[in-house]
Amino acid sequence: MIRDPLGAFVPGTACVVQATGDGPLAGTTFAAKDLFDVAGHVTGCGNPDWARTHAPAKRHAAAVKALLDAGSTLVGKAITDEISLGLVGRNRFEGTPLNPKAPDRVPGGSSSGSASAVAGGLVDTALGTDSGGSVRTPAAFCGLYGLRPTLGRISCEGMMLQSPTFDTCGWFAADGEMFARVGAVLLGAPIGGPAFSRMIVATDCFAIADEPVRAALAPAVARLAGAFASVVEAPLATGDILEWSAAQSLLQRAEFSATFAPFVEAAVPRFSIEVGTTLALAALIGEADLVGPKAFRAEATARMVDLLGDDGVICLPTTPILPPPRDEPFSALMRSVGRIVELTAIAGLTGHPQVNLPLADHGGIPVGLSLIGPKGSDERLVAFARDFPAA
């Protein structure tokens, strides 16, 4: 079992699988969020009653197998927020992984252990999942490269699905070169493609960010501008940008309520207050409540397609807030989750790829800057992240 000074791995769980190939990731190591199946091991999903009521996996998840076949060795299952319902990284049952870049702050979730392990140098890369922001948020909070891919771009076979029309498989790396090496394996294609020529700086997204975030990102945005032939400042939304997160929240909650309802009925599981409350409120959502959000989703997606074309990217803060303190009270953390979704909802609602670039900090606390690209531009976003200088 790997030495774990960060509390990044599921306690008491030894899960080591040697590489099965000698490919482009030979000699590297990775962690898998405890939502990915590993043959012979229970996928615990951050909840003891889920682990108790589920049998060991019979085969590896597709993403786990891809990394093993490429020459990387799995060294452990990383902690996730409980049944992946969280964005700050606290798990009542398994603990809160350390944020190596800001030890007094949360690491972000729900791929908290994966980000912690990479940021702390325990592994070269790690698998995460992103439905409402669960790769992008910990990447931003821990100062890492992280991608939420185009919906459906990377296989989710063998990954616990929470909200099927939002769920994606992503990954983390501490440097651009490793980020691209892993990306080529998971995306199954060479990293590169036509360069983006336009950057739209989403003024409404920056406007709702806290002042320390805006101030930290201003120099990074100015640096990014030099990489594009055209840079314009414009609002992303035609109305209130917060309508995007309102629609995303209702749709995602309805989906994960349906996902977990059979488990709740059969196992009557123990939940933390935040997860139990979230599930209880989600169960009250009816079909009539989803008519408006579904229509809005189609409109928002069309808006993104129009703005991006084939050659554009949207620039925005990854999260509108700094990572909250580890000891922040429950009520304040719930407010923080609501703030985070204000911006992570955009790519999740519309199925677009989004990359976090670790280009800024506020007094040493990481601040993430994001680019959202056209659907299917994943390889191009990763290439930009690899080639743009970090400092």
Rank of each mutant, 00 (worst) to 15 (best):
R335D: 12
A62P: 02
R181I: 09
R3M: 10
D310V: 10
T277E: 15
A227M: 01
P5E: 12
L290M: 13
G40S: 08
S114A: 15
A126M: 06
P190N: 02
P293L: 06
F260Q: 08
L369W: 00
E265I: 10
L187W: 04
L68D: 11
F296I: 10
L307N: 11
F93I: 00
D240Y: 03
G152R: 07
P374N: 12
V231M: 06
L308D: 01
L251I: 05
W171F: 09
M178K: 06
Y145Q: 11
A61W: 02
V42A: 06
S230P: 01
T350A: 13
L322Y: 02
P11D: 07
S197T: 00
R339V: 10
P5A: 11
T319W: 13
L74E: 01
V135C: 14
L381K: 02
V17F: 11
V264P: 00
S131W: 06
G128K: 12
L333M: 09
L85E: 10
T168K: 04
I241G: 02
D240Q: 05
A261F: 03
T129E: 04
E243Y: 05
S155W: 06
D327Q: 09
C142H: 08
G292D: 11
I83C: 14
G351P: 13
I314T: 08
V17P: 08
L87T: 12
G226Y: 05
A345L: 13
G226E: 10
P262L: 14
T277N: 15
S155P: 04
A282T: 10
I365Q: 14
P149H: 07
I365V: 15
C142P: 03
L144H: 02
L85H: 09
D378H: 12
I83Q: 11
E328V: 13
W171A: 07
R297Q: 15
H54T: 15
Q18R: 15
T319S: 15
L161D: 11
V38G: 05
T168S: 06
I200A: 12
G188Q: 13
A184C: 07
I191Q: 00
L217Q: 08
V75D: 03
